[in-house]
Each structure stands twice: as C-alpha cells, then as structure tokens.
C-alpha cells in the first residue's frame, strides 16, 4: 500500500531523508523501542524480525507478528506514556514506527515531536514530516530495497 505525504506540518529537521544505510546504523542504538502496528504485513516477508532485533517491541492495534514483545497496547496509549517520563517502564531514546496506519501515526509522531525527547523514526512507506526521520514517498520496490539494505547493514 502506498502511503501519502501529509502536508500538515513542517519537518522537524529539514535535511536528508531516511535511507536504508542510515536506518541500519540507527537501529543499532541502544534504548530503541519499536511500535509495530496492525499493518506490519505490508513489510516484505522476513524483514521485520531482523529489523527489530535487539530493541523492545510494543505491539499496537491488532498486530501479531512473530516477534517477541514487551507489551501490547494502543499506539495512542504507548505514545502518551512515552511523553510522561518513565511511565513506559524503559528508557527509550529512539522510537521506531513500523506498520502503524498513516493517519494515526501522523498524530502520534506530532505528539512525540512536541512532547517527548525521543527521536522518532518511521519505517513506513509514506513520508511523515513529523518524524525525525522518515522515508520519502517511495514506490513499493524502492521501499523494499531500502528496508533490505537496512537489514543487511544491521547484520554486517
């Protein structure tokens, strides 16, 4: 599924768009929390597991991927707790959105931008101006390629 550019807000940090190589590096940071949402199946097979490896995973919506989670809660609930220091039970300097439906992700990324110190990254296909880093609007093939590269980087 292609996702849209959302024209509502200005970018947090104008600059380079996210790419696979950069992502691979970033995901190795400690204190990374993955919010994996109900559209996780949009990711190509076998990509999610290596991407989230080493980080904490919260499953949102009805997501049920084969990865170990620390909790299941609504993406609204998780982001709200992230904005209240220490409430989520971990120190997360980096929050990564994966498979979260675009609109609700937009709202949550805006919330994090304004009310949390965590760096927010979106791995989904549509551009998210409120994330610190997000892919530009990509074709499915290009997106899958970038994700593949990120996985490769991580394991390298």
């Amino acid at each position: 599924m292609t996702q849209a550019h959302s024209p509502g807000n200005v970018r947090v940090k104008p600059g380079a768009d996210l790419n696979g190589a950069m992502l691979g590096k970033l995901l190795n940071r400690p204190g990374t929390l993955f919010l994996v949402g109900s559209q996780w199946k949009e990711l190509p097979d076998g990509v999610l597991e290596p991407l989230v490896d080493g980080g904490d995973v919260i499953l949102t919506g009805s997501a049920n991927p084969p990865v170990e989670k620390v909790a299941r809660m609504g993406v609204s609930e998780a982001c709200h707790l992230l904005c209240s220091e220490g409430s989520l039970g971990g120190e997360y300097g980096q929050v990564v959105f994966v498979g979260i439906p675009h609109h609700i992700a937009t709202g949550m990324l805006s919330k994090l931008k304004h009310y949390s110190d965590a760096t927010a990254i979106s791995l989904d296909r549509g551009f998210q101006p409120d994330a610190n880093l997000a892919f530009p609007n990509l074709s499915r093939e290009d997106w899958e390629e970038e994700l593949g590269e990120a996985v490769e980087r991580r394991s390298a």
């Binding site: 509502g8 200005v10 982001c79 709200h80 919330k111 304004h114």
Partner: peptide, 23 residues
C-alpha cells in the same frame, strides 16, 4: 483522563502577529 494533544499544525496563523512557530 489526560488530554493527549496531537497537534495537526506547528504554527498558529489565526491573527496577524503570526504565523507563529510553536515547536
């Protein structure tokens, strides 16, 4: 119940002081 704000805009442009950047 906490009000959880999810701004759709970073700026206010409702008066001529603005637009004001609220980030």
């Amino acid at each position: 119940y906490d009000s959880s704000y999810e701004p759709t805009r970073d700026v206010c442009d409702l008066c001529t002081f603005g637009p004001c950047d609220l980030t």
